[in-house]
Computed example of a mutant assay.
Amino acid sequence: MPGSVLVAYGTTNGSTAQIAEAVTEVLRKAGLTAEARPAGTVASVESYDAVVVGGGLYAGRWHKDARRFVRRQGRELARRPLWFFSSGPLDATASERDIPPVPGVKKAMARLGVREHVTFGGCLEEGAKGWVARMIVRNGKGGDFRDFTAIEEWAARVAADVQEEPERR
């Protein structure tokens, strides 16, 4: 059974990292070997059977580390089962309806054969890095809109898909 899964992520204030850690924990509980790593620290994906990539959304774009990772590792990512998630809306919309991927992510999905993409609510709280982020919080538009039940349910589907992979060959 293949079972080595990388969960790579791009984050500025840590919210997407916490989602990646939650996904990783579910994968481990399902019996897979999984690790969450900042996308900028991953030199190669060759030792992984499957990959999940997550990026925080900033001004309609995925975090630069997630974008760069996908570009750098594209050839190897295309050879593996691959899932994407985005983190970002600072309201309840991600819990209320499916939010499609932003254009750059959609393009990468088509190029790499991504199996699924999901957008989770984001989190922006006091102490956030960046002038824009601080202004959002100061204007009362911040908060934690992550739904960890939905995150765990999605991760369980990913785990089941990874475990079924040998049967597809």
Rank of each mutant, 00 (worst) to 15 (best):
T33Y: 12
E21W: 08
S87L: 09
R67E: 15
W131F: 15
T119M: 00
Q18N: 14
R138E: 15
V70L: 12
V70K: 02
K141L: 08
S87F: 02
S44R: 13
A17D: 07
T12K: 14
A22T: 04
E35V: 15
A110R: 15
R169T: 08
A94K: 09
E165T: 02
I151C: 01
W83L: 06
N139K: 14
E76G: 06
I136M: 11
D98E: 08
G121Q: 09
N139T: 14
A8Y: 05
K106W: 13
T33I: 06
F145Q: 07
P166I: 08
M135G: 10
L90N: 02
E46G: 11
E96G: 04
A50W: 05
K129C: 03
A39G: 12
F85E: 01
R80Q: 04
D161A: 02
E165V: 05
G130M: 13
E125L: 15
R75P: 05
G143S: 08
G74F: 07
A36F: 14
L27S: 10
G60W: 15
R169P: 08
K64A: 07
E165S: 03
K64R: 14
S87P: 01
A50K: 04
G104E: 15
A59N: 11
A20T: 02
P38Y: 12
G60Q: 13
G113N: 06
H117C: 09
T16W: 12
W131T: 13
W83D: 05
A94R: 06
M135Q: 15
G40D: 09
A30D: 11
G74L: 03
R68N: 14
T11A: 07
A133R: 05
S4L: 04
L27A: 05
F84Q: 03
A43Y: 00
E126L: 11
V162D: 00
W83I: 06
E25S: 09
V51Y: 11
T11R: 03
V105R: 10
V51S: 07
R72L: 08
R68C: 00
T12W: 07
T93M: 10
G104A: 14
F85R: 01
A159L: 07
K106L: 13
G74S: 09
V102R: 06
S47A: 12
A150F: 10
D161E: 05
G54H: 09
G113I: 10
A92W: 05
T11P: 01
E125H: 11
P100E: 11
